[in-house]
Design a protein around this nucleic acid. Sequence first.
DNA 1: CCCGAACCTGAGCAAGCGCTTAGAGGCGTC
DNA 2: GACGCCTCTAAGCGCTTGCTCAGGTTCGGG
Lengths: 207, 207
Amino acid sequence: MSAAEETGGEDTPWSEVTPEAARRLLVAAVEAFAERGYHATTTRDIAGRAGMSPAALYIHYKTKEELLHRISRIGHDRALRLLEAAASGDGTAADRLADAVRSFVRWHAERHTTARVVQYELEALGDEHRAEIVGLRRKTDAVVRGIISEGVRAGEFEVPDVPGTTLAVLSLCIDVARWFNAQGSRTPDEVGALYADLVLRMVGAQR
Amino acid sequence: MSAAEETGGEDTPWSEVTPEAARRLLVAAVEAFAERGYHATTTRDIAGRAGMSPAALYIHYKTKEELLHRISRIGHDRALRLLEAAASGDGTAADRLADAVRSFVRWHAERHTTARVVQYELEALGDEHRAEIVGLRRKTDAVVRGIISEGVRAGEFEVPDVPGTTLAVLSLCIDVARWFNAQGSRTPDEVGALYADLVLRMVGAQR
DNA sequence: CCCGAACCTGAGCAAGCGCTTAGAGGCGTC
DNA sequence: GACGCCTCTAAGCGCTTGCTCAGGTTCGGG
């Protein structure tokens, strides 16, 4: 089992959120935001799903936007750590790229509810919060570009446009959150394997 | 110039919408929906951008949702026609696939404002309208899967999972609408060329 | 010159929004 | 057993929302 897979299994997704009532509200918000979108979700809906009155929300969070920020922050952190774990593993660049894509995609499929909010509700954030998240996304981009660059330098990959290919690889992986359906015929593992193979083809790795 | 490129140039994007006031409202709605999202856009904002009073909107459209449906319908029609033009061209499967991706991606980049609404605001549609649009998307999927299947049958491509690869190719192309920025360093043509190359790699075409 | 149809506006309604406030209840501490 | 602290609720405030409607303007045809 690779380094990425060891840290990929996430048993208690929101364990960093305390107290328990705050976590219940946050989980309810993730569900609601993923289903309807941030703007179409009401604070009454979130509180209702958590079994509380609307006012209870404001004991744990200053605004509805703070809820989105917390979700986005934690999700981006986790996704970034998955990529960094894979990138820092040993093995060829192809191994590490496949590892990174596999665990990144698996996370986006398995936790597609969270991922949808994290990846597609960015524009609802306030200016400072959005800037913070954009910083995390740049780090994500740098990790993937790093692996691809190393593969090119080592002669493993054949990539004419490294930044463009990096963008495409990440775009492909992220969009899994949009279309993935838990009732569909593919498991997160299957999608991860398929995508790892496709990405190795994209960078011209000899497979 | 290929068949796809001939029909790809779209001079008067919303010429099918009449009268002129209805078109102005629709263009304003596209801009607003793309910037803020459907739910965060108010009818007052749309009417304001079109230089009219809020009430004027309801002379031309029954509801705000009807505006979104019209936009989505026209956009999906146009994207589907681009793909069908490329698919029905002559040339190898690789030629046609590259052609399809090139024009599809170029449309998503060039008209990324429209494409963003068309591709990412689907869930704001009412049930019957959404069902209609989902039908168009299935057609889109079938066109791409058709080209890839033909390439496999002709021995041009080497694809273990045709439906999965089709899904990935379309996902990759569609997501251009999300990240493409007109002020960025890449032109729609450049992105189209890059993506056509990447997709040929994904299907294992000998290039 | 007037009519009717098409188009548009100003004013506003009912409903729903994010968020606040006053106060009730539980709980460990002294 | 009175205390302060934390958590939560009932009620509701001020505002915005999608949408409506009575009435005004414009204009081609008779």
